[in-house]
Design a binder for these strands. Structure first.
Length: 257
DNA sequence: GCGACAG
DNA sequence: ATCTTGTCGC
């Protein structure tokens, strides 16, 4: 692969990202209350007609107590990476099921803000609206983005879904206690456990599923997230923007200092 | 009270 | 998520 690198001063950004204090909570009780309030801002409709470039984000946790978020811009037509970025932030919130956004959200936004490539939508490793209060990481982060966002989790946080058929592409609806659809259990790859995807913001259930299907390329995870996951591990514990190791495979690790 | 519980 | 060795399969 071949990557382009540039600038050292002010970072260009392909999209306006405003966290608006949406990730500031001192206690778990306040965090939950904030989620209840923010869920009203969600837009549950929309789709991406012909996605050209998609962003993928994943977060790795470092022993130093930092969150290392990796974001990539991936071109749908060619299946190639256009840009790779990493952001490292100190962790200031513990992992509590249902409150992941307060722990990883800031790092995710920081990494996305470093992308200079315009993207049509964002795929995030985590739950979207398939969450106890309807505001998983991808939905919460999605409130700060100008484009559609989808959450793709490797396991189920809540709700129930029938096991999808063995064939790749098979899916079943992920339902809440009242039988309303929250997301989709998707068999993205043969002999692999299903993915649990759900809309983040600015997209519908159908739109979210279509987007994920369009980003699958043989791996269990959609390609943008698969690459972000790999980049995160490669950069973990290392200086960002460091020169590549010949054997590492990556040309470099681009990110903020 | 007892389980379930993204990353 | 992270801690970790070998191992089965394409």
């Amino acid at each position: 692969m071949c990557l382009r690198r540039k600038r050292s001063g002010a970072q260009h950004r392909a999209m306006e990202i405003e966290d608006g204090g949406r990730f500031a909570a001192e206690t778990t009780a306040k965090a939950r209350a904030l989620q209840e309030r923010l869920r009203a801002e969600l837009v549950s409709r929309g789709s991406v007609r012909a996605p050209r470039v998609l962003a993928g984000v994943d977060v790795a946790i470092e022993a130093s107590g930092h969150a290392l978020a990796a974001a990539v811009a991936w071109e749908v037509a060619s299946g190639e990476l256009r840009e790779l970025r990493c952001a490292r932030l100190p962790l200031r919130f513990p992992y509590v099921p249902g409150l992941l956004a307060f722990r990883e959200g800031p790092a995710v936004l920081a990494a996305l803000a470093l992308l200079e490539t315009p993207v049509d939508a964002v795929l995030i490793d985590g739950a979207g609206v398939a969450h106890p209060r309807g505001l998983g990481l991808a939905a919460h982060v999605g409130l700060c983005l100008p484009v559609p966002c989808v959450g793709v989790a490797k396991s189920r946080l809540c709700g129930s879904a029938a096991e999808p058929a063995p064939e790749p592409g098979a899916w079943t609806p992920l339902l809440d206690a009242e039988g309303r659809r929250m997301g989709t259990a998707l068999r993205s790859r043969a002999r692999a456990g299903p993915l649990f995807l759900s809309p983040g913001n600015r997209i519908s259930q159908d739109g979210a599923l279509a987007l994920v299907l369009a980003a699958l390329r043989g791996h269990r995870l959609p390609e943008p997230i698969w690459h972000a996951d790999r980049l995160g591990r490669a950069a973990k514990g290392r200086a960002l923007d460091a020169k590549a190791t010949p054997s590492g495979g990556l040309a470099s690790i681009a990110g903020e200092g």
